[in-house]
Amino acid sequence: MEWQQLEYFRVVARTEHFTRAAERLAISQPALSRSITHLEETLGVSLFDRVGRSVKLNAYGRLFLTRVEKGLQEIQDGIHELQQLKDPYTGTVSLAFVMTFGLSLLPDFIGKFNQLYPQVKLQLFQNTTAGIIRQLLDSEADLSILGAIDHRNQLEWQKLLDEELYVYVPAKHRLADRDAIRLEELSQDPFISFKKGYSMRALTDQFCQQAGFTPHIVFEGEDVATVSVLVSSGIGVTLIPSFTGITSNKIKKLRVTEPLCRREIGLAWLKGRTLSPSADLLRTFIQSYFQ
């Protein structure tokens, strides 16, 4: 059994079509078919059910695919680690983060990391919490910064900080001259929030429920810039972390005294996966930065 055979099997399993798989692998279809046949003979079981020109993974194939993907990922990680060990301060690290975290903290610590380790290349991804979890589980991201998660059996999560959330209202709002409010005072106001799947949307719903009401969402956005612009235009109010660049003649930030509106932010990575030296370097830096 060869590594190449396992890679061929993975591509056929994902496409469930020999012609498309052969095109993706840049080999002839007969050569691909022979490779899969030899693999099945070695294993002593059929991995696919043949249906015309298409194939479909059977129970044996699905079980084997799970192991193959883990094994190939380990091999790729090993090759990557060996390459980076030539110089532990070079390499590429992928970091995914929730969109609202990038408002102020991210540029600061990324800038300091780049100053210390200028040869380490960072790949940054903004995503929803659900999207980030998928990236970690699929090994598309080495590390991530996101709120508390429920996937502790698959992911490691380490708390970095507590972050306060604020209400932002239009400058001409009836409460704009206040410094702090109770969230229940906005029970009749239209809310501008994030789409479902974003952690800030879940937190907004949660805190409003604690205050005794269900928020009336009039717009669902994907980024803080859009949300804040709509608040400044007078369409509604929002609940988000503090951010810079606002003008007090258009939008006003208010503290929430009740309920306590805070969120936990943490660092996550795939449990059991050995991080590359560069990724481990970034993880250690982030942990130290937020201590």
Rank of each mutant, 00 (worst) to 15 (best):
V120Y: 05
A59M: 03
D138K: 11
L183S: 08
D138T: 14
Q84S: 04
L6T: 08
L282H: 08
G212T: 10
G71Y: 15
I181H: 06
S232L: 05
Q29M: 06
V98A: 12
Q123M: 10
G266E: 04
L105F: 01
E40F: 03
N58Q: 07
V51Q: 08
L203S: 05
L25D: 10
G61K: 00
V169C: 11
H173P: 06
M99Q: 07
L281C: 07
A26R: 15
L63Q: 05
V231S: 03
G52F: 01
F18M: 11
V218N: 09
L165G: 03
K112S: 03
T42V: 00
I286K: 06
G221D: 14
V68L: 12
I217P: 01
D142E: 12
Q84L: 11
Q123G: 08
E185S: 15
E23R: 12
W157N: 04
L260D: 11
K196L: 07
S35H: 07
A225Q: 13
E7D: 06
L65G: 06
F109C: 05
H17F: 02
Q154T: 10
V167A: 14
V45T: 03
R152F: 04
V169S: 00
Q135I: 00
S35Y: 06
E258C: 02
D179V: 11
L63K: 03
E41R: 14
P118C: 02
R152D: 13
T42W: 11
L65Q: 03
S35C: 04
T66S: 09
L103A: 14
S33F: 00
K112P: 03
D223K: 14
K196W: 05
R34N: 10
I235E: 05
T247N: 15
V227T: 14
Q115R: 14
V169M: 09
E264L: 11
L281W: 04
A22G: 10
Q76I: 03
L122K: 10
V98S: 13
F101T: 00
R20T: 06
P215R: 07
Q4T: 13
G147E: 09
L239E: 09
Q188A: 11
I27V: 15
S46L: 08
Y60A: 11
R34L: 09
G197C: 08
Q210W: 05
K271C: 01
R50V: 13
T100H: 13
K196N: 13
T90G: 00
F64N: 02
H173Q: 05
L186Y: 01
E156Q: 05
V231C: 14
L106G: 00
T37I: 02
K112C: 02
S199Q: 13
G78N: 14
Q210G: 01
D108T: 12
F285M: 07
P277Y: 03
I133V: 15
L85N: 07
A148T: 04
P215W: 07
A148V: 06
S193F: 02
G61Q: 01
S35E: 02
V55I: 08
P190V: 03
A59R: 09
E156P: 00
